[in-house]
Amino acid sequence: MSESMPARGASTLNLRGTSTPATRIIGVLALAVMTWVVVSAFFFTAPDVVQGDSVRIMYAHVPAAWVAYLAFVTTAIASGFSLVRRHRTLGFDRVAGASAEVGVLFMGLALVTGSLWGRLTWGTFWQWDPRLTTTLFLFITYVGYLAVRRIDASPERRAKRSAVLALLAVLEIPLVHFSVVLWRSLHQEASVLNPDGDVRLDGLMLFTLFSGVVAFTLAFVWLVIHRQRLQTLVDLQGTVGLDSALAARATEAVLR
């Protein structure tokens, strides 16, 4: 049976906004760690021996890519639950959707920072490198997923279709990655002047990178919670409880 009534958990929500003490703490923490990462990345850490200052892009790029993958795993898991737990379908569906939106955002960020770094290091914005190519396909896949979510269909139908789509992506990505690796291994071009971009990290660099991952993860959690709650409110808008709807329907009969 589908969940056509107001979402559970809506009652615990402060209806004037989407924040709760917990999200405020997460938000403040994310901000604080992010500030440290920015300051450390630009002023405290040393430039790389080979790459120079361009290595600083890494402090945004790696966490962004990490969060993107985390987001897509979250989407897949939430989608799985939304298919299995029939009574909570729409709740899990909202989490899946919110996570995918944030994931696409961060994956876009990772692609942009990556290609900027590539321009500085390799002298070119794009390389048909297996990891890059897979990431691009992953990005397009989730853009398509979001397109399906925007479709004007009943919430149940939309939830079902997009959940299947998110789980199919889990099948798709390893196959894409494997085939791209095999493909690129056939003709390895020697045009890449620099090594594969591996960096020797000292203690502070490693710590800054780690802080970046923490900061981006906190930001991800904060965004997903808010986005999910916002969607709950949107879904609630205009729908009254089933009880009042039934009462309204009863008066309708009397009036006629």
């Binding site: 056509s4 009534m5 919430p155 089933l242």
Partner: peptide, 11 residues
């Protein structure tokens, strides 16, 4: 009661 999209079409 059947209520697609929250509206009790069958009440």
């Amino acid at each position: 009661v059947v209520a697609p999209a929250g509206f009790p079409a069958l009440a």
